[in-house]
């Protein structure tokens, strides 16, 4: 695996849309959110007609993907790796409610919005881009596996790859373990195979591991959580964004997702 660089980022969190407001948030310790869901305003990118049809996850994905790409010249055709543990679980929940009504009447738009890759689909429709795109899900290692995939694309041939990872708070289906994801969060970054220049940071180690190697790696790793009381499958990405943008952070951070028995993704990132 080639070392690679993080050249731009963006984030959506409750009350936060974009890096500038995120940096403001990081000045508050401990982090506090007045709500656990994201409500983005309608915009040129999210026209009100389409916004009404989109889940919060789709809105967050489109917005963060746009912002990160806008900050990186040359990445317009970059492939998109999209990671989400639960995908459109709230929409699936509403479709399941509909099919058990009598007669079962499913909304066509709810049905096509229920597929896991709805968000990257909308992104390409809104931007009319023809890039390659894939969607990955791996529970608590969703971010790490998506990053492995993005890095593999870079080492293959692509100069830039965009990685967007997110999940929305589970609300509709009670069977889907709502406590597992109780806050909206989505983040995006553009990765470059070039490690020089004005990169935000460099990924100097990225690997899958298990057993004693993973246990050792974990000992030095940074704790993974967004804020007290909140659980999110992609929290490691939040911690990475915090490391990249908190005024006080410097040097390296080591992150591990997963557990040593079933397998971990470990990564070390160094700020430029």
């Amino acid at each position: 695996m080639l070392p690679c660089s993080i050249v731009s980022t963006s984030i959506a969190l409750p009350g936060i849309s974009g890096i500038e407001s995120f940096i403001d948030l990081l000045r508050h310790t401990p982090l506090e959110f007045s709500t656990d869901t994201v409500d983005l305003p309608a915009s040129d990118l999210l026209p009100i007609r389409l916004k009404r049809r989109m889940s919060r996850l789709i809105q967050m994905t489109v917005s963060t993907t746009f912002q990160a790409r806008q900050s990186c010249a040359g990445s317009a055709d970059a492939p998109l790796v999209y990671g989400s543990a639960n995908g459109e679980i709230n929409t699936i929940g509403s479709v399941l409610n509909e099919i058990f009504q009598e007669p079962p009447l499913v909304s066509p738009s709810a049905f096509h919005n229920s597929v896991h890759n709805s968000a990257p689909g909308y992104w390409s429709i809104l931007t009319r881009l023809h890039h390659a795109s894939t969607t990955i899900s791996a529970g608590e290692t969703t971010f790490g596996c998506a990053l492995l995939q993005a890095a593999a694309m870079l080492s293959d041939r692509d100069p830039f790859v965009q990685l967007t990872v997110g999940d929305e708070k589970i609300q509709v289906p009670q069977w889907a373990d709502p406590g597992h994801t109780n806050i909206d969060f989505c983040g995006s970054m553009v990765l470059s195979r070039h490690t020089s220049g004005d990169a935000l940071a460099h990924i100097i180690d990225l690997r899958h591991m298990h057993g004693p190697e993973a246990t050792e790696y974990q000992k030095e790793a940074h704790p993974i959580r967004i804020a007290s009381g909140y659980r999110h499958p992609c929290a490691a990405f939040y911690v990475l964004l915090e490391f990249l943008h908190a005024p006080s952070s410097s040097g390296r951070i080591k992150l591990v997702e997963g557990d040593p028995e079933s397998g971990c993704i470990g990564m070390t990132i160094e700020r430029s």
């Binding site: 543990a85 639960n86 995908g87 597929v115 896991h116 890759n117 795109s133 894939t134 969607t135 990955i136 899900s137 791996a138 529970g139 290692t141 969703t142 596996c145 998506a146 492995l148 995939q149 069977w175 889907a176 899958h208 298990h210 057993g211 079933s262 397998g263 993704i265």
Partner: peptide
């Protein structure tokens, strides 16, 4: 139900130790 669980199952059924994830693009 989670999309990642089928890959986790295949990994455990085969006693594999490499990365495991699911791809869901309809």
């Amino acid at each position: 139900h989670t999309f990642g669980c089928v890959s986790r199952l295949l990994k455990r059924l085969s006693s594999l130790q490499g990365p495991a994830f699911s791809v869901s693009t309809a």
